[in-house]
Design a protein around this nucleic acid. Sequence first.
DNA 1: GTTTCATTCGAACGTTCGTTTGAAATCGAG
DNA 2: CTCGATTTCAAACGAACGTTCGAATGAAAC
Lengths: 235, 235
Amino acid sequence: MTASPQVTDDSTTAGWATRQNLLDAAERLIAQHGVAGSSLRKITSDAGTNLAAANYHFGTKEGLVKAVVSRHLGPLNGERLRRLAALEADGDPSLEELVQAFVGPVIRYGLERQDQGRDIAKIFGRAMTQPEDTLRDLLMQEMRPVIHRFSAAFGQALPHLGQQELMWRIFFMIGSMGHTMAGAHMLERVTDGMCNLQDRDGLLKRLQAFLCAGLRAPATLPADSTAAPSSETSP
Amino acid sequence: MTASPQVTDDSTTAGWATRQNLLDAAERLIAQHGVAGSSLRKITSDAGTNLAAANYHFGTKEGLVKAVVSRHLGPLNGERLRRLAALEADGDPSLEELVQAFVGPVIRYGLERQDQGRDIAKIFGRAMTQPEDTLRDLLMQEMRPVIHRFSAAFGQALPHLGQQELMWRIFFMIGSMGHTMAGAHMLERVTDGMCNLQDRDGLLKRLQAFLCAGLRAPATLPADSTAAPSSETSP
DNA sequence: GTTTCATTCGAACGTTCGTTTGAAATCGAG
DNA sequence: CTCGATTTCAAACGAACGTTCGAATGAAAC
C-alpha cells in the first residue's frame, strides 16, 4: 500500500480536480443506477481518469461512496440544526416552522444546484431503506443527533402525542420526505407531467401541508407518554 | 437452449418443490441484501439446489426476481380492489375506509405470513424508488391500474383538492407506506425497541390516522382542479 | 424391459468486478 | 536545472458473477 491522501477534508488545495471529478461522476451515476450498478470503471471513465485514481484518492469504492454522501450530508444537517436553533431563539417554534426547518433544506438543496442537488437528494432518499450497509449506516449515524434534536422540538409542538406515537409520526414524515426525494421523478411520469418538479416552492408547501396535518392528527392510543422503552403495552 | 417450463403459473402440480424453494430463498435474500447483493449462487445454495435449476425454472435471474414479486403482488392488489369494490357497493366510502383498503392489505400481508410477509413487504417498499429497472417497472406496471382506481375514489372523498394536489397527496401517502414497509425495522432499532412492529394493528391505526389527517389538509394552492396536464401554471 | 420426457446435477464458459502494482508524468522548492 | 514528493497512467490480478452445456437421475408410458 503506497502513501495516499485518504483525507476527508475538501476544498483545501487547488490541484484536486480529479478528486472533484470523481465525486461528481460518482454522485451522478449512483443517483441514476445505484451503488451496485455504478462500477468504478464507469465512474472513472466519466470522470476522465482511470481506476487507479479512485484508489489513490479514496482507497476503496466504499470510501468513494462515503465521500459522496459526506460532502453534502454535513452541510445539509448543519443548516437544519442552524434553522432549528434560530427558531428556538425566537421562542416556541410552530409545527409549520419545525417541518420547514427539517424538510426545507433538502428540498432547497435541489433547487440551488440544479441537477447535482436532485442527484444527491435521490441518493439520500434511497439510502434510508437501502439494503447495502455502507450508505444506510453512514446516513443513520449522521442523522441520529439531528433526529434526536428535532424529536424534542416536535414533542414540544405536539404535546398531545406520547413518545411512541411521536416517534412513529416522525418516522412517517421521514418516509414521505424520503420517498419524495427519491422518486418524485416517477410521479412526473405517472401523471403524464401533470405534477412538475421544477416548482420546488410549491412542492415544499404541499409536502409541508400534508406533513403538518398528519403530525397534528389526534392520538390514536390514549396514553403511552410515560411508557418505558422496554414495556410492551398491548391495550 | 433446452426446453424449459418458463411458466408464470403456480401451484399446479405438486412436484415443483425446487421451484418453491428457489422463490422462498430468493425472497428472503433479496429482502435482506437486495437484488444485486443476492447472487444466484447464494440463492440456489440456500434453496438446496444448484445454479442450473434456477435457469431451468426461471430462465434468467431477472425471471426469478420477477416471479418473486409477481406471486405476491397480484393477490395483494386483488385484495385492494376487492375491498374498494365492497366499499363502493355500500355507498360513498369514507376516507378512513379508503386508506384502510389501500394500506391495510400490505400491512396485514406481513401479519399472516410471519417472516415471509415482512420480507415481501420490504421488497415492495423498496422497489418503488429502486434504481434497478427490473423491480420498479414491474411494480409500476402492476400498480398503475390500482392507483388509478383508488385515485378516483380518493378524489370523491376529498372534493376540496384539485387534481394536482390530490396526486401529490397520494404520492406522499405511498411514500409513508413504502417507507414503513421497507424500513420499519430501523425505527425499532433507532428507538431502542420503543416502537415494536409486532403490533401490526396498532401500526395500521397509527399510519391510518397520520395519512387521513395529511390527506384531509386544506388545499395549499387555491384552484388547480381544472388545470390541463400540459399547462405549467407558476403563480 | 425399453423408451421417453421432465428435472437435477457438476463443471465449465466468458465477462465484469474491485483492487493492486510499478513506472511515467507533473510540479513546486532548493 | 535538479531533486523529491505528489499525482496519473496502462496493465494485470484473483475473485465473483450470470449463463450454458452435456450427462445423470427419476418416474411414468408403451
